[in-house]
Amino acid sequence: MKEDRTGIGSALDVHTAPQGLLTRALARHRRSPAAGRWTWLLAAATLAVGFVVGRWSVPPPEPTAVAERAPAAGVVPVRLVCVQQGATQAAVAGSWNDWNPGATPMVRVADDVFATTVLLERGRHEYMFVVDGHTWTPDLAAATWVDDGFGHRNAVIEL
């Protein structure tokens, strides 16, 4: 029997404990009466965090190459700019991207200023900015707005 110099071994069954710090810790955990309960709680908490983060997180802004490509016929490039003091990130959610802010992140072009260029088909489009992944903000500089039916104001682009 090896001498235990780490102090962990006192909690283990020295006849069955596996070698290695991690494996010894896992073995100790398995023997704990509350192990199953805490594990399920951890699983539930991780699922909940994953769900919330998954729904609201906005991926890091990436430089868009959209404006550098010649648009296809019938598609119009539209530059959108959001000014929001103190914001760390911004995105656009609208009728062309299923109102998914994760689909159209904006690039920071100056302090508190974010911009992106989107390619839109001819027709009517509505949108809002989403700041810091969760705050829906109207584009107050848009030429036209419309009530979305939920108490918000959508900016309108007609091409």
């Binding site: 729904r55 119009v76 700019v81 705050t135 903000t137 107050l140 030429a143 900016a155």
Partner: peptide
């Protein structure tokens, strides 16, 4: 005012959050 054919939409001042979302 700008012509309606201009597809450049200017700076949108997000004046205070609408506080939507969870």
């Amino acid at each position: 005012a700008r012509s309606g054919g201009d597809a450049d939409h200017g700076a949108g001042q997000g004046g205070g959050s609408e506080g939507q979302g969870n």
